[in-house]
Design a protein around this nucleic acid. Structure first.
Length: 334
DNA sequence: AAACAGGTGCTAA
DNA sequence: TTAGCACCTGTT
């Protein structure tokens, strides 16, 4: 191979891509659409990519799940199988990547990645039943669910999710993504594949507010710092939060500057998997008012209470399907 | 060029 | 309790 080319450029053999890159397939208990799931806006770190060694896949995205960078792909728009590529030259957080344990008894690093994917993509959710129930609720829900078929509410890391949504205040998705990526690259740990994990709370807490500002987070710098401080000191205990009733957990989160009802609800839904919460932003407020409340002018609080009551334990999925649909399909309508 | 963006905190009624 | 406004800065 010619000097200057990437080391992997000449490799054509089956299964041979970049050195250290490994691949596995995870079959979930129900359908998944990577596009709907990763582009609906619940997570900010996923970018379209080419799956290593399989350029013909229907879709693929690179991103970071917790502390591990991966590329995920699928062969058609909605499948039950996710292909996962990861960088085995980095030790996985489990501590025992390949060395410990006798060969032949299953591969611990592959098993770790599989567990990670199942958790992140909320494998326990009965997507078929959820979509069927939502579509049956009639009105626009049928159309919304048809558009977002295979959308899964992720189970993200609570701290990363909280920090990301603090950064989201009055910003658009590309801008949020830019700040998150900057913070990871600047203060995070290597996660493989040239990517970095989102920095731990104590790492951001120990920075000057002014250096956080370099992530282009603007006036949110002090909010991010406050969040890092309170989480690192356990003044707001993210582990304990998981055991609290939703109302109490929401109140706890809102003790952080820059965390109001919308941000708190997003964290409860996208990290703590409280599927009965209904985060309300301007888009959802518009959609609910228009399609469920006769176009009346309504407060965000009224919309939230309506959503939680009307959709019940499906509120989170209803919200995300509505959000994805209204932005994707109705973007150019009044 | 100017308005807008997945809200929230602050202040004034 | 509620309405009105400012807020950083990259996109559109």
């Amino acid at each position: 191979m010619t000097a200057g080319e990437p080391a992997w450029a000449g490799e054509q053999g089956v299964g041979e891509t970049e050195p250290g890159i490994r691949e596995t397939t995870v079959r979930l208990s129900g359908p998944v659409s990577l596009k709907a799931t990763l582009e609906c806006g619940q997570a900010f770190r996923w970018k379209p990519a080419v799956f290593p060694g399989r350029p013909g896949l229907y879709s693929a995205y690179r991103g970071v799940m917790g502390r591990v960078a991966v590329i995920v792909g699928q062969a058609s728009p909605v499948t039950e199988e996710i292909l996962v590529a990861w960088d085995a030259s980095f030790p996985l957080p489990s501590g025992r990547s390949a060395s410990s344990g006798p060969a032949g008894g299953g591969d611990p690093s592959q098993a770790y990645v599989e567990r990670l994917v199942r958790r992140y993509f909320s494998d326990g959710d009965d997507i078929r039943a959820i979509e069927e129930s939502l579509a049956r609720m009639g009105g626009v829900m049928g159309e919304a669910v048809a558009h977002g078929r295979g959308l899964r509410i992720l189970t993200q890391d609570p701290w990363e999710c909280l920090a990301s949504y603090v950064l989201s205040l009055n910003k658009n998705v590309p801008a949020i993504s830019m700040s998150v990526e900057y913070l990871a690259a600047c203060f995070g740990e290597p996660a493989g594949m040239g990517a970095f994990g989102f920095p731990a709370p104590h790492v951001l807490a120990s920075q000057e507010v002014s250096s956080l500002r370099e992530s282009k987070c603007g006036f949110r710098d002090k909010y991010l710092h406050d969040a890092a401080l309170k989480v690192a000191s356990r003044e707001v205990d993210l582990d304990l939060l998981g055991t609290l009733p939703t109302e109490e957990a929401r109140r706890e989160l809102m003790r952080i500057r820059g965390v109001g009802p919308k941000v708190a609800d997003c964290v409860l839904l996208f990290a703590y998997h409280r599927l009965d919460v209904f985060p309300v932003d301007v888009w959802i407020a518009r959609a609910v008012s228009r399609y469920f409340m006769g176009g009346k002018d309504v407060t965000p609080r009224a919309v939230r209470e309506f959503g939680e009551r009307y959709f019940g334990r499906l509120a989170g999925y209803a919200q995300e399907h509505l959000f994805y649909w209204i932005r994707d399909v109705r973007r150019n309508e009044p």
